[in-house]
Design a protein around this nucleic acid. Sequence first.
DNA 1: TCCTAAACTGACGAGTAGTCAATAAAGGCC
DNA 2: GGCCTTTATTGACTACTCGTCAGTTTAGGA
Lengths: 255, 255
Amino acid sequence: MAVSIPPPPLHAETPRPGESRKQREIRLREARILAVARDQILEGGYLGLNMDRIAAQIEYSKGTIYQHFRNKEEILLALVNDALDTRQRMFRAAAGFDGPDRVRLATVGAAAEAFVEHFPYHFKVEQIVRASSIWEKTSPERQQLMQTCEKSCMTTVVEVVQHGVAAGDLSLPEGVRPEEVVFGLWSVYLGAQIISHSSDTLGEIGIDNPIRSLRTNQHRMLDGYGWRPLSSQFDYMAHMDGVKAEMFRYELFAT
Amino acid sequence: MAVSIPPPPLHAETPRPGESRKQREIRLREARILAVARDQILEGGYLGLNMDRIAAQIEYSKGTIYQHFRNKEEILLALVNDALDTRQRMFRAAAGFDGPDRVRLATVGAAAEAFVEHFPYHFKVEQIVRASSIWEKTSPERQQLMQTCEKSCMTTVVEVVQHGVAAGDLSLPEGVRPEEVVFGLWSVYLGAQIISHSSDTLGEIGIDNPIRSLRTNQHRMLDGYGWRPLSSQFDYMAHMDGVKAEMFRYELFAT
DNA sequence: TCCTAAACTGACGAGTAGTCAATAAAGGCC
DNA sequence: GGCCTTTATTGACTACTCGTCAGTTTAGGA
């Protein structure tokens, strides 16, 4: 199984060249703020994020935090950007998989699954930002960064679809663009994950293994578009389990 | 086109039998609190909901609001329950459509679309409740009510799928249950709507008409399951536009 | 060693959720 | 109506949190 491992993430404590002790101190502190914030969000959502408590935990005063981030929302957005960056690295690695395009796409799906499993706070933060009206309070620079990341993630996947079309494995009907297929996969993924994480009676409703159902549905959608090899011709389930355990291990993408 | 119109919603101002003037006053006030809260949420999300401002707007003191709702979160959950109730009425009407089961399912899809278009606050509130950790702060009674509604909505749709299987239009593969198909449609719907409402650069990304894409993807998924009539054999788009304009007009379901 | 710029601090202002003792209204009874 | 008990209503108050900023400390060059 051919895998292309992305460059290992630069660990925060590694000194950067041409960086004064003070600069390094500041950079490390910023990382600590984000780490502490992430835990608080994972614990109690948006309301669990508390500036005074961050200050206490990093053992600096509140004012110092505001030298790093204009406000609470900027912290959230910074966390989202981390999330998007991590996912992008995972997606790029997935898209580099060597095989038929639909199999490459399934690899991206496995990456998306692994992303939520390894980094649940990333997923949660993204969801909070999508739901709240925190957008207005954040700086245009960070907003732009987020949009760029999102677009770039999308492009990575769209290219796989385009390649599939060019290879003749998939012929899209009149008026359907590759972006729409990606939008479909993205929707199923996002919707299924949100339902799984917010509906604690899924079992009662009749969904025992939401991740498996998510996969099945994504594959049926691609079958519906007639993308070969169809899910009856290739064991996508086994493939996804395989790459998830090999290519998308936690250590390879943790920051 | 056979349509079954649900019972018209009981307007809040209609007097209930055996109800004292005082009781009616209280019931009306509760409706007003929710109406005002809904507007505030639509305006500024969860943070836009302000107890003092609600009090000022309904011209009662804050303490009185707390006689109706234990806390802010209970107001949110009450709004969600209204939303689920409305959607359920729309779904039941849709499922009552007379035609092949897959067409009935498409009718439910049209209902879901109309729901978001007519009642955007309902959708927004649901999203907020899914994202925030407000669950813990709310009373078990309301939680249960919400779960019951959600389950019942699911059941309505599952029955359509089961009927399709029984009719021989759809044969599910080994180990796939009707609930999973519904879960798939639900995921696409939820995911697509959330992306549409939270990503303001969708056009740049290449999605000009997200609702159309949502429909296409749902239908391709059902095609992937081989549910007849396939989307190549029936004009689901025209059907959905038709019923949306006829069966799911705003006035028929507004409360 | 001194001096200036940068970093850091925490008390404070402003705003908001939720409480509760005091007050007002309702409704039963004579 | 007048009296009394119960229920409803009020808004000042507490507790908590975000974000600010004048005053203080630290860093590092001259």
